[in-house]
């Protein structure tokens, strides 16, 4: 589920579970998981990262497939966990977990073969490619393709849509002025193409952009899972 979603945006996990169930996927959310370890790993504390990542190795031991509504967590698991656990007892499990973990949009499109999702969501929407998704996992246009079937949804492209939003985990706290300037840059580019909604696959990015938009106005950042679930009427009540 990812720790950020669990604690700050549970509606994203609810939406993800509902979407998958709607597609006849058997969903489980093992409770043993805490955090993939990315914050510690990126801050230069790999042994700390191993401690929390270990909970994922255990939690997903018996799962066939693991889906994360987060490009950065999926990237951490696929790209870094195998090397992080190299030479330890968990090396095989880490490699195994890496081989069966997917980000949500790539799971829907590449694994389940979903071509479009029918639904209604009248809005002008710009897509935010998260860096870990784009350059880590090499995601392509899966996210955008999932939006094409939605009635009333007009997809627009921002200039430099592959430019980082400025979250970067601890960067957003270490260098807040830069992080804010980078958020402003993205929100301005989204506004310039008339977007009401800025959709993406990573809660960290979205939280950072939404936090800034709350002060300066601008399109509403929204997780892809949330948008799809709302479009399909799978949510009991809209997000706050």
């Amino acid at each position: 589920m990812t720790c950020l979603v669990d604690l700050l945006s549970p509606e994203v996990a609810e939406s993800t579970a509902a979407l998958l169930a709607d597609l006849n996927v058997r969903v489980d959310v093992p409770d043993a998981q805490t955090c993939c370890g990315q914050p510690a790993f990126n801050a230069g504390y790999p042994s700390v990262a191993r401690r929390t990542a270990r909970t994922l190795l255990e939690a997903f031991d018996r799962s066939t497939t693991v889906v994360a509504p987060s490009g950065s967590c999926a990237a951490m698991i696929r790209l870094h966990l195998p090397r992080l656990f190299e030479g330890t007892r968990e090396a095989d499990r880490a490699r195994e977990l890496a081989s069966k973990t997917f980000e949500l949009s790539e799971f829907l499109v590449d694994v389940l073969g979903v071509e479009r999702i029918a639904g209604v969501f009248p809005s002008t929407v710009a897509y935010h490619d998260s860096c870990h998704g784009l350059r880590g996992l090499r995601l392509g246009d899966q996210g955008r393709r999932l939006l094409t079937g939605i009635e009333g949804l007009r997809l627009v492209e921002m200039e430099r849509s592959d430019t980082c939003c400025g979250f970067g985990g601890t960067f957003s706290i270490r260098l807040p002025e830069l992080a804010t300037a980078m958020a402003d840059d993205e929100l301005a580019r989204a506004r310039a193409v008339g977007a009401d909604v800025l959709v993406g696959g990573d809660t960290g990015c979205l939280m950072h952009l939404a936090g800034r938009a709350a002060r300066t106005g601008g399109p509403r950042p929204m997780h892809l899972a949330l948008l799809l679930a709302e479009a399909r009427g799978l949510r009991a009540s809209p997000a706050p």
Binding site: M1, P10, A13, V29, D31, S172, M207, G211, R215
Partner: peptide
């Protein structure tokens, strides 16, 4: 440092794992 320029979401009323 975050809140100088941005709002921060509060912890959700209930973590997803509890809802689940």
């Amino acid at each position: 440092r975050w809140t100088a320029g941005r709002d921060l979401p509060a912890l959700a009323k209930r973590p997803f794992r509890d809802t689940w």
